[in-house]
Nucleic acid binder design. Structure first.
Length: 968
RNA sequence: GCCGGGGUGGCGGAAUUGGUAUACGCGACGGACUUAAAAUCCGUUGGGAGCAAUCCCUUAAGGGUUCAAGUCCCUUCUCCGGCACCA
C-alpha cells in the first residue's frame, strides 16, 4: 500500500513494533515479583497444515487485550503460548505426503509462529512449549507413571472402531455417521487390550468441585450432564438353571449364580418380569449354567458384535434379543421365576451390563415385552387420593353452570381437570379450570366468587385461588387432584367423558388439560394400549408396599433389599473410564514394559523420555497395533526389574495427554528437574482465566481437571482445581454463515487480512463483530469500517498543527468531552473485564466521533484515547504514542482511571410520558427533583395537550430518567 | 426425546437488567471535492399516513402482569448447540 497522508502504513508500523517488543522482552512474565499475579491462558493451537484460522485470533486477541490491560494495571501477567503438536491429522497428512510427522510438525509450527507473531499478540514467547518435544513429553510420561503408580491406570480388553476395508483402527472422530471417514465402509468393532484411566473414581469430585470455580453456567451444565449421575440400587437376582433347580427361599439365597442389575427405580421391583443381559455379559459365557440354546445365543452375540455403533443405537430400529433357555432368574421381591434374555438394547458399559426389565414402567422394556410377548405387571398407580376434592369441584362447577343458565349469563369452561396428558405421555398431574365469561358479566362473577369465599388474586400460579383477567378470562386453580374424565361442551354446561382411546388420539394441544377416568382405568388403558407409564405414583401390586409413594417405595424397598443382602443403594455415572491407548504412531509412547516374568513394569524415571523412534511407515498395522510394534530393536528391551527379555508397550497416548497439563509446564517451561518447580507452580497456579472453544468443555476440560486432581492427591500440584475461571468464544463462520472449510472454498486466511488491512484492523474487527461467545459470520465489508476508524484516529493526531492533537496547543476546557472521556474509560474498562469487547470498541468509536467535532483537541485527551485503544490496536497506538514524543512504550503506562462524578452527565434529556408514551423530552439537570420535573412538565405545550380535560391519576417519577403522568 | 441458549432494521448487532427501542459499524441513497474514479468529508436511512407540524404501528406470534415490557409470567412457532436405548 502506498503511504497516504490520510492513512497509516500498517505494513511499516506493525513489523517495526513487533520487532521492538520482542527485543525488549516487554511481555515476559516475572517469576519473582511483588506485583499481584495474573495468569491468563488460551487453548494452545494444534499446528495443522492449514495454518492459522481466523477463529484463532478471536480468542487470542480477547485475552491479549485483557493481558495488556492487566499489565497496565500493575499485574505480573503470564500469557503463554505453545503447540499441541501430537495427533491424528498430522499423522494422516504424513502418510499422505510420505513425510515424517516430526518434520511436518516443525514446518507447521514455524508457520503458525510467524502468523501468530504477525498479529502482535503479547505472548511470552520465552515460555513456548511443544507437546511433541521429548523435553516436554518426558514429563507427560512421568506424570503418566505417577498416576500409574497411584493405581489410576489399568488394562482392559475393549472394542476399538475398526474399518474392515482399510484394516485400520479408527478414532471416534474418524468415524462419520458410522462409516470410515476415508473409504465409507461401515465401521465395526475389534477387541484390543487398552490402557484406561479411572476417571470414574473422580466423577463425584468433578461434579462437586464445580462449585469452587467460576465457569460459565452452560459449561458447568455440560460437564454435569456429561458425567451424569444417577441414584438407585444394585439388586441381585439369583439364577436357577436346569442343572440346579431352586425352589425354596433358602435355596435361592444359596444359589451359585446371580446377576446384579442397576436400577433407578427399585420401587418397580415387583413389576420386573424378566432380566436382560447385554451381549457382552460374563454370565452368558458360563458353561455351568447349561443354557439349552447356547448356539443360538452365541450366534446372536456374534451378530450384535458386528453391528456398528450406529446400528446398535438406532432408536428407530426394532429391538432384538434371544431368551436364554433353560435358565431362569428369581425376582427377589415376588420370588417368582422370570425369564432371562440377552439383547443389545442393554449396554455393556453402563451399570452392570444387565437390567431388570419392568415393561409397565419403562418404554424400552415395554417395546421389548410387546414384541416377545413377555408379561407386563403394573406396579405404579397414579394418586387417586383426592377423589373427594374432585367431587367437590365438580359439584361446584355444576352449581355455577346452573346459576349461569338461570341468570342468563355466560360461563364457558375451557379445559377440564385431572391428568395432564401431554406429548403423548402421561406426565404429571394437574388441575385447573379455565373459563370465559362475557366482559359485561365480569362484575357479576367477581361479586359471586368473592361471596363464595374466593380470594381474587393476580398471580394465576397460586393454588386454590381464583383469577380473573380483565379480558373476561377466568382461571381457577384447584391444585392437584385426580378425578373423573370430564370435558366441557362448548356451551359450558355439559360435561362429557373421554374414552382412553380418544385420549391416545389427541393432538398435543388437545392433551393439555384433560381429565381421566379413575386411575385404575388409566392403567387398564395403558396395559391394553400402547404405552408404559414412566412417571412417579403410588405402588400397587407390590405386597406390603402397596400405597406408598414412589419416593417412599424406593427407600423402603432398598432398605429391605439391604437387610436381606439382596441389594444396596448405588450411584452410577454415565461417564466412562478414559481409554488412553491409541494404536497410532504420532503420540507419546506409553512408558511401560511387558515382561514375561514380572508382568507390567514401568520404565524407570531416570531413563525417561521413552522417545519415539523414526519409522518407515506410519500406517497403523493390519492387526490394529501401532506401527511401533514393527520396530523390533525398539520394542525388544531388557526388563528393568529382572533384566530378562521384555517388550515395550507399543500403544501411544491420545493427544489429550499433552494438553492435559501444558498450563502447568508454562509456569516453569525449561526445568529438567521436575515437570515444574513447586515454587513456581505455587506462584502462578491456578490459571486465573482460561478461554477456549465450546467443543472442549467436556473432554479436554474434564480430563485436565481429572489429572490435576489426581496430581493434587499425590501432593504434586498446589490446588484441586486448575482453572479458576473458564470462558468460551464463539466460532467465526464463513460469510455464507456456514463453517469455514476447504471443501466449501469459503476459508478466510488471516495472512491476507493482515497484509491488506493490518493486524490491528483484524484484531479490532474480530472484537467488534459481535458478542464474544456467539458464532458470527465473517463480513469482509465490516473490516473496512474498523480500518476507517483506525485511520480516523491516526488523522486526528496528525491534523493541522495549530489545533492538532500532536501539538501542545491551547487546552480547551470542553466539559462535554470531559464527561464523555470519563464515561468511555469506565465503559471500556468494564467491558474488557466482562468480555464485552464489541461494545468497548463501539464506545471508542463514539469518542472519536465526538473528538472529530471538537475545534480544539487537548493533547491529554488524545493521549487518553490512544491509551484506551492500545490493548485493541497495539501497533498503531505505540506508533502514535511515539509520535507524541514518548520514549517509553505505551504499555508501560498506567491504565486510565475515571472520575465517577465526571462519568455522569450533569444535564440529561429528561423524558415526559403520558400514560407510558413519550410525549416530550427536555434538557434538564440530572438531579432534578420530582417537584421541579412536574413543574417543567406542566409548562410544556406538548404535555398540556394531553392533560387537557383529563384527570391526573398518578405521577411516577424516575430520578434522572423520566416522569410518567397517568391520566384518565 | 432430554438438557442448554437464542429470535430486535436490508445485514453484524446495542439497550445501564422493568424506564427514551434500533447505539456503533456495514450497506443503500443524496450531496461536496475531482477532468474522472478511488479515497475522504457532509446529510438521509425501521414501517405507514401527511405539503407540513404531527400522528399511528413496530423487538418471532398470541395472551397476561405493570403507570411503564425487547427485558418478567403463560401459550405457540422457530433456529442453533450438546447429549441420546445410560435402565
Amino acid at each position: 500500500m502506498v503511504e497516504e497522508d490520510n492513512k497509516y502504513n500498517h505494513q511499516a508500523i506493525e513489523p517495526k513494533w513487533q520487532k521492538r517488543w520482542e527485543e525488549s522482552g516487554l511481555y515476559w512474565a516475572e517469576d519473582n515479583s511483588h506485583k499481584p499475579k495474573f495468569y491468563c491462558l488460551i487453548e494452545f493451537p494444534y499446528p495443522s497444515a492449514d495454518g492459522l484460522h481466523v477463529g484463532h485470533p478471536r480468542s487470542y486477541t480477547a485475552l491479549d487485550i485483557l493481558a495488556r490491560k492487566r499489565r497496565m494495571e500493575g499485574y505480573n501477567v503470564l500469557f503463554p503460548i505453545g503447540f499441541d503438536a501430537f495427533g491424528l491429522p498430522t499423522e494422516n497428512y504424513a502418510i499422505k505426503v510420505k513425510k515424517n510427522p516430526a518434520e511436518i510438525t516443525k514446518t507447521n509450527i514455524d508457520r503458525f509462529r510467524r502468523q501468530l507473531k504477525s498479529l502482535g499478540l503479547s505472548f511470552d514467547w520465552s515460555r513456548e512449549v511443544t507437546t511433541c518435544d521429548p523435553e516436554y513429553y518426558k514429563w507427560t510420561q512421568w506424570i503418566f507413571l505417577k498416576l500409574y503408580e497411584a493405581g489410576l491406570v489399568y488394562q482392559k480388553e475393549l472394542p476399538i472402531n475398526w474399518c474392515p476395508s482399510c484394516k485400520i483402527g479408527l478414532a471416534n472422530e474418524e468415524v462419520v455417521s458410522g462409516k470410515c471417514e476415508r473409504c465409507g465402509t461401515p465401521v465395526t468393532k475389534k477387541n484390543l487390550k487398552q490402557w484406561l484411566f479411572k476417571i470414574t473414581q473422580y466423577a463425584q469430585r468433578l461434579i462437586d468441585d464445580l462449585d469452587k470455580v467460576d465457569y460459565l453456567d452452560k459449561i458447568k451444565t455440560q460437564q454435569i450432564n456429561w458425567i451424569s449421575r444417577s441414584e438407585g440400587a444394585l439388586i441381585k437376582f439369583q439364577i436357577s438353571s436346569t442343572k440346579s433347580q431352586i425352589n425354596t427361599k433358602s435355596q435361592i439365597l444359596n444359589s451359585k449364580h446371580s446377576v446384579e442389575v442397576f436400577t433407578t427405580r427399585p420401587d418397580t421391583l415387583f413389576g420386573a418380569t424378566y432380566l436382560v443381559l447385554s451381549p457382552e455379559h460374563e454370565l452368558i459365557k458360563n458353561k455351568e449354567l447349561g443354557i439349552k440354546n447356547y448356539d443360538e445365543v452365541m450366534e446372536y452375540i456374534e451378530k450384535a458384535k458386528k453391528k456398528s455403533d450406529l446400528e446398535r443405537t438406532d432408536l428407530a430400529k426394532e429391538k432384538t434379543g434371544v431368551e436364554l433357555k433353560g435358565i431362569k432368574a428369581i425376582n427377589p421381591a415376588t420370588k417368582k421365576e422370570i425369564p432371562v434374555w440377552v439383547a443389545d438394547y442393554v449396554l455393556t458399559g453402563y451399570g452392570t451390563g444387565a437390567i431388570m426389565a419392568v415393561p409397565a414402567h419403562d418404554e424400552r422394556d415395554w417395546e421389548f415385552a410387546k414384541k416377545f410377548n413377555l408379561p407386563i405387571i403394573m406396579t405404579i398407580a397414579i394418586d387417586n387420593a383426592s377423589d373427594n376434592l374432585t367431587k367437590e369441584i365438580f359439584e361446584f362447577a355444576k352449581k355455577i353452570s346452573i346459576l349461569a343458565d338461570k341468570k342468563n349469563k355466560k360461563f364457558i369452561f375451557d379445559g377440564g381437570f385431572g391428568l395432564d396428558i401431554a406429548y403423548g405421555k402421561i406426565t404429571r398431574n394437574h388441575g385447573d379450570i379455565d373459563a370465559q365469561v362475557e366482559k359485561d358479566d365480569l362484575e357479576f362473577w367477581k361479586e359471586y366468587f368473592v361471596k363464595e369465599g374466593f380470594e381474587i388474586k393476580k398471580n394465576p400460579d397460586e393454588r386454590f385461588e381464583l383469577y380473573i383477567a380483565d379480558n373476561g378470562k377466568f382461571h381457577i386453580d384447584f391444585g392437584c387432584y385426580r378425578g373423573k374424565f370430564i370435558k366441557n361442551s362448548i356451551k359450558g354446561t355439559e360435561f362429557t367423558a373421554f374414552s382412553p382411546k380418544e385420549i391416545l388420539n389427541f393432538k398435543k394441544s388437545e392433551c393439555k388439560r384433560l381429565g381421566t377416568k379413575r386411575l385404575k382405568d388409566v392403567h387398564d388403558f395403558t396395559l391394553f394400549n400402547e404405552m408404559a407409564y414412566i412417571g412417579d405414583g403410588f405402588l400397587i401390586n407390590s405386597g406390603i408396599y402397596d400405597g406408598l409413594t414412589s419416593e417412599e417405595g424406593i427407600k423402603q424397598i432398598t432398605k429391605w433389599l439391604e437387610k436381606e443382602k439382596l441389594g444396596k443403594p448405588a450411584v452410577n455415572y454415565k461417564l466412562r473410564d478414559w481409554v488412553f491407548s491409541r494404536q497410532h504412531y504420532w503420540g507419546e509412547p506409553i512408558p511401560l514394559i511387558h515382561c514375561d516374568k514380572c508382568g507390567i513394569v514401568p520404565v524407570p524415571e531416570k531413563v525417561l523420555p521413552v522417545t519415539l523412534p523414526t519409522v518407515r511407515n506410519y500406517e497403523p498395522t493390519d492387526t490394529g497395533e501401532s506401527p511401533l510394534a514393527a520396530i523390533k530393536d525398539w520394542v525388544n528391551v531388557q526388563c528393568p526389574k529382572c533384566g530378562g527379555k521384555a517388550k515395550r508397550e507399543t500403544d501411544t497416548m491420545p493427544n489429550w495427554a499433552g494438553s492435559n497439563w501444558y498450563f502447568i509446564r508454562y509456569t516453569d517451561p525449561h526445568s529438567n528437574q521436575a515437570f515444574a518447580s513447586s515454587k513456581k507452580m505455587k506462584h502462578w497456579l491456578p490459571v486465573d482465566i482460561y478461554n477456549g472453544g465450546m467443543e472442549h468443555t467436556t473432554l479436554h476440560l474434564l480430563y485436565s481437571r481429572f489429572w490435576y486432581k489426581a496430581l493434587y492427591d499425590l501432593k504434586l500440584v498446589p490446588g484441586s482445581e486448575p482453572y479458576s475461571k473458564r470462558v468460551s468464544h464463539g466460532m467465526v463462520l464463513a460469510e455464507d454463515g456456514k463453517k469455514m472449510s476447504k471443501s466449501l472454498g469459503n476459508v478466510i486466511n488471516p495472512d491476507d487480512v493482515v497484509k491488506e488491512y493490518g493486524a490491528d484492523t483484524l484484531r479490532m474487527y474480530e472484537m467488534f463483530m459481535g458478542p464474544f461467545s456467539e458464532a458470527i459470520p465473517w463480513d469482509t465489508k465490516g473490516i473496512v469500517g474498523v480500518r476507517r476508524f483506525l485511520d480516523r484516529v491516526y488523522r486526528l493526531g496528525a491534523r493541522g498543527n495549530e489545533h492538532g492533537a500532536m501539538s501542545t496547543g491551547p487546552k480547551a476546557q470542553d466539559s462535554g468531552l470531559k464527561v464523555l472521556l470519563n464515561k468511555t474509560i469506565k465503559k471500556v474498562t468494564e467491558d474488557i473485564e466482562n468480555f464485552r469487547f464489541n461494545t468497548a470498541v463501539s464506545a471508542l468509536m463514539v469518542l472519536v466521533n465526538e473528538m472529530e467535532k471538537q475545534k480544539q483537541l487537548p493533547i491529554t485527551h488524545y493521549q487518553l484515547l490512544i491509551t484506551l485503544l492500545s490493548p485493541f490496536a497495539p501497533h498503531l497506538s505505540e506508533e502514535l504514542w511515539e509520535k507524541l514524543g514518548h520514549k517509553e512504550s505505551i504499555f508501560k503506562e498506567k491504565w486510565p482511571q475515571y472520575d465517577p462524578n465526571l462519568a455522569k452527565e450533569s444535564e440529561i434529556e429528561f423524558v415526559i410520558q403520558v400514560n407510558g408514551k413519550v410525549r416530550d423530552r427536555m434538557q434538564l439537570p440530572a438531579d432534578i427533583s420530582e417537584k421541579e420535573a412536574i413543574k417543567k412538565a406542566e409548562q410544556s405545550e406538548k404535555i398540556k395537550k394531553y392533560l387537557d380535560r383529563r384527570q391526573v391519576v398518578k405521577k411516577i417519577f424516575v430520578k434522572g430518567k423520566l416522569l410518567n403522568i397517568v391520566v384518565k
